[in-house]
Design a protein around this nucleic acid. Structure first.
Lengths: 138, 138
DNA sequence: TGCTGATTTGAACTCGTTACAATTTTATTT
DNA sequence: AAATAAAATTGTAACGAGTTCAAATCAGCA
């Protein structure tokens, strides 16, 4: 058993590890802030000076395709990414812009029964938008 | 009582009617296909030759701000719009690209109870992605 | 060491969307 | 009805997230 959770996550999803891919996965594992590709790039370019923004985009696309990460379109302007692939919902605060996790596994499970006959669902996203508890009090 | 549902929808949401705004609202009322701004422009420029794409974008933004329409970020690449403001979910087929309505009013209502204390929600979006019944059978 | 394929890189590019100033239309006042 | 003010529309230019692509680099292996 490896001591590196990020390494394990890559291998578990049939992704050949590399310095860049490990760095991106480690960032997603350590920061549950739903970062954008740009935020990830800016966070990692310090430790990997040759890092290219294209690599970050390619890596994230690969992660999503392999099921190692999730892409959120809650923002509408920037895609952001989540390393937690267990089902849960998200809340976007329109004031501070932060994305929060919301436990909703059972609700998402229920929702699958509402689909018309013959529709096969591959992913479900539940997005809330409004004001978070910090921004609501000011 | 007016005979024009689009006109009524605008007035009901404090939107001053104009030729362009009426045309956009009429299109949304007549076509529940969740069109993009570009699709709406292309559909209307025939009957309003001077129509500007900027006007379509401005109009849709106004509609959303006033609650007369909803913007969907289900695609991640193109925003699309829905003239039906009653709560329901959406299904995006990754093969044909169509967006389908899914009845989920009660589920969305339930979901509001899952939010942490102090969070105030202004809108909830439930997005399914997968294969529609047409595309699944081929 | 040399070869082959996968990965990374950066520059150029695409395209949805917005900013902005000018023009046109609509409403209001005299 | 003419003049004035306010609002809406238009087109161009610009922005920026994300992608394409060819060249360079790296990893695995004979």
């Amino acid at each position: 058993m490896s001591e590196n959770a990020a390494y394990d996550a890559l291998v578990a999803h049939d992704i050949k590890p590399s310095v860049q891919r490990l760095a991106v996965m480690e960032y997603l594992s350590a920061h549950h802030t739903h970062p954008t590709a740009d935020e990830i790039y800016n966070a990692l370019v310090g430790q990997i000076p040759t890092l290219s923004k294209t690599t970050v985009y390619n890596t994230l696309r690969l992660f999503v395709r392999q099921g190692a990460a999730t892409m959120l379109t809650i923002d509408g302007h920037n895609a952001c990414f989540d390393g937690v692939t267990a089902p849960h919902a998200h809340f976007l605060c329109r004031s501070c812009g932060k994305v929060f996790d919301v436990p909703a596994a059972s609700l998402l499970q229920e929702g699958l029964r509402l689909l018309p006959e013959g529709f096969s669902t591959e992913c479900v996203d539940l997005y809330y938008r409004g004001l978070c508890n910090q921004c609501a009090n000011n």
